[in-house]
Design a protein around this nucleic acid. Sequence first.
DNA 1: GCCAACGTTGGC
DNA 2: GCCAACGTTGGC
Length: 157
Amino acid sequence: MSDQRYWLLKSEPTAYSFTDLMAEPNQTAEWDGVRNYQARNFLRDEISKGDWVLFYHSNTNPPAVIGTAVVVRSGYPDNTAWDPNSDHPDPKSTPENPIWFMVDIKGKGALDYPVTLAQIKADPRLKDISLSRRPRISVHPITRMEWDIILEMGKEM
DNA sequence: GCCAACGTTGGC
DNA sequence: GCCAACGTTGGC
């Protein structure tokens, strides 16, 4: 709790959108289905309750940060991995030896305006953002400065 | 829908 | 443990 951290989580809106999150009871949902080891390590080891989250829509036009959320439960085993009826079953992961982890997040609010990937890439202050440097990971740490800049951009036309 | 980037798998 | 083949992500 003492070390406030900031993250960017990607989701394909056709699979799960920010609107879906805000429609959940208490605007809270499990962030499950991550099946990438680097992202898993962040979820298991680093994301903590109370951390802030930028919710990013990927594989859509345009890709953009669309809202904010807060982590309400730190990393714990992703039980959808051993549910054969889930969208992302992985029989190698078991309750005794879980491979995959998830967190719970609570949606806070949409930005006034989405901040597009093009805007992020065009801003020299954001040239080092993990989103640009490490494509295809669904969990990115961001800095407080990057958080502030993107939220500010989300209030402007 | 194309395809670049990169992670994962599996033969050897 | 190397690395080619294959699969996936995700911008465009």
